[in-house]
Nucleic acid binder design. Structure first.
Lengths: 129, 129
DNA sequence: GCCGAACGTCTACGTTTGTAGACGACCCGC
DNA sequence: GCGGGTCGTCTACAAACGTAGACGTTCGGC
């Protein structure tokens, strides 16, 4: 059974993870500085979140000197996909379509991504369902 | 101003709302029966959730006899869209694309919806961003 | 007109989340 | 070698969530 999917992220945890994912890895001080500016969080708040994220298995902490270097255990995509899956589970009836339309409208997509999605839809077309 | 978006739904609340959305409206007894079968919830649990949903403004309760008839204040789509928006906010970097790809793969779409999405992507194509 | 079944409300309690202070350990510069 | 600053841990507490029992009210059937 292995460890499989870690616990889902709470909103405040997403914010921390998002920062660490962007950096690749970060020291507490970086996260603290960012969170102070972006969310007006006190250092203690960030420390607590970092610890919880390590406990939950989302971050790996490697000792460096007197402190830790935090890095994501997995890339952002799997977590996003799991969140997306649970979103889809909530889509009643035939709302998956309108929901996708909404998402596409709201997304900033590059030309390549648009092409990829089009290709995917074309492949789906024949054997829809 | 006005009342605007109600609070976000918690996981257990989504389950209740999903049922009510499908029915259009429902009496407590219907929800209780469904939840007992689907989630093994005690009647009290469902009653509490129904009350919280009414308090949060997701359900409207109209007295009918000795009980209430519950119906959604808004259709499922707006709630789903709000959930989708918060999902997109978590999408770091250029992950919106892969995320959409994942969603399209996981979704059961009809031919018409596929056509609509394709048209949308075509329109996006030129002035991709 | 009374009784039982069903309904909604109140209360409860453990867990998770958001937010944060206190404190002891430790490393680096002087 | 010492002191100051930084780090992580422990503790705290309110609010939200998940789950549920107790209870008073009330509607419908007999």
């Amino acid at each position: 059974m292995a460890d499989s999917a870690p616990d889902a992220l709470a909103p405040a945890e997403w914010k921390v993870m998002k920062f660490v994912w962007r950096r690749g890895r970060a020291a507490a001080r970086d996260v603290i500085a960012h969170a102070a500016a972006a969310h007006d969080w006190r250092p203690s708040t960030v420390k607590t979140l970092l610890k919880r994220l390590v406990d939950k298995g989302h971050l790996k902490a490697t000792r460096v000197g007197n402190s830790f270097l935090y890095e994501p255990v997995e890339s952002a995509l799997p977590s996003l996909q799991r969140a997306a899956d649970s979103l889809l589970e909530h889509a009643v009836d035939g709302l998956a379509g309108p929901l996708l339309v909404h998402l596409v409208k709201r997304s900033r997509l590059g030309a390549e991504e648009i092409a990829e999605l089009r290709a995917l839809l074309d492949a789906r077309k024949g054997r829809a369902r």
